[in-house]
């Protein structure tokens, strides 16, 4: 029973990571840009949703306001700053986007103040649902799971079945050739970046009622997100989904069961230390193992 609940928890964390990883992997895989400021877009999504929901009392309106806001901010930074960085070294990109993190953290604390904001679950999702007899599970977490899976299906359809998706794939393989065929590649990149930003904003909104909505909230989760896309294979949506679910499950199950396992072996005092430390390391161990066996990730993008 506990295992079922913990697996669900793991899947839900994985789906949350997927929402962030999908945008990041698209930008990194297709535009070859390392965007550390992805977490800032997640933060902006959460803050906009929290304030709109605070004014109107409606979570849905908050969500509807946050998505275009994150997409617009994303496209603005692509046009203003990142466009100049595509041809540059990855180190320059890391420096510039790290600067953007500082900029957005400061901007958010100027606009909203330094204190954390409040974003509640919508009333119709606030209770718990009995998924198995005697096993209540928060309805909101189930909703996050559903939203994440819906986004995965939508992205698969977008990339594989639509003209935009075809252009995205073509642009990733050979940028110059696509441009020579008369496609406005700059506009395409801006759109892709906006899509990634919107997904980050969506992740921020979904995270708001569960996690703290505070300045700097995007940084911790960004590290996990990078682990996800490295495991999944850079540029692959399928890889991002697989990597995210794997990281979510390993992290949650590790935290849930490693301390107990060690407790049986070596007594509670030592175990809580060793177990907790090992649980924090688990995802990195998994990442190292995956990279040792498949250096380009689980689902490498061919080309």
């Amino acid at each position: 029973m506990l295992i079922v609940e913990q697996v669900l928890n793991g899947l839900q964390l994985g789906v949350m990571l997927f929402l962030l990883a999908a945008g990041l992997t698209l930008v990194l895989g297709i535009m070859n840009l390392i965007n550390l400021a992805h977490g800032s877009l997640y933060m902006i999504g959460a803050f906009v949703a929290a304030s709109v929901a605070g004014w109107t009392g409606s979570f849905v309106l908050g969500l509807l306001a946050a998505l275009p806001a994150a997409a617009l901010v994303g496209m603005a930074i692509e046009v203003v700053a990142l466009r100049r960085l595509y041809a540059r070294d990855h180190l320059d990109q890391v420096l510039a986007t790290f600067g953007l993190i500082l900029f957005f953290n400061e901007l958010v604390s100027i606009v909203w103040g330094p204190r954390a904001l409040f974003l509640d679950t919508p009333r119709w999702l606030s209770g718990a649902v009995e998924i198995l007899p005697g096993l209540p599970y928060p309805a909101y977490r189930l909703a996050v799971l559903a939203v994440g899976l819906a986004v995965a299906v939508f992205l698969a359809w977008l990339v594989r079945r639509t003209r935009l998706g075809m252009l995205i794939r073509a642009g990733a393989t050979n940028r110059e050739m696509v441009a020579a065929l008369g496609v406005n590649i700059r506009l395409l990149y801006t759109l892709v970046f906006g899509l990634g930003a919107m997904l980050a904003g969506l992740a921020g909104v979904m995270a708001g009622p569960i996690y703290a909505v505070e300045v700097g909230m995007g940084e911790h989760i960004l590290i996990l997100t990078f682990v996800v896309i490295v495991i999944g294979g850079i540029g692959s949506i399928r890889g991002a989904l697989a990597g995210a679910l794997l990281v979510g499950l390993v992290d949650t199950l590790g935290r849930a069961f490693l301390p107990t396992l060690f407790g049986a072996a070596m007594g509670p005092a030592a175990a809580s230390g060793v177990g907790a430390s090992l649980a924090s390391m688990a995802i990195y161990i998994v990442m190292a193992a995956v990279l040792a066996l498949r250096p380009r990730g689980l689902f490498p993008v061919h080309g």
């Binding site: 506990l2 609940e5 913990q6 928890n9 793991g10 839900q12 964390l13 949350m16 977490r141 995270a207 569960i210 996690y211 703290a212 909230m217 911790h220 989760i221 949650t252 199950l253 935290r255 849930a256 301390p259 107990t260 509670p268 809580s272 230390g273 907790a276 649980a279 924090s280």
Partner: peptide, 18 residues
């Protein structure tokens, strides 16, 4: 029970279930 969590951890679902 005595549990040490990761510093900066956001998700406590596993700990809360335990």
């Amino acid at each position: 029970g005595e549990v040490y969590t990761k510093l900066g951890q956001k998700d406590y679902a596993a700990e809360i279930a335990a």
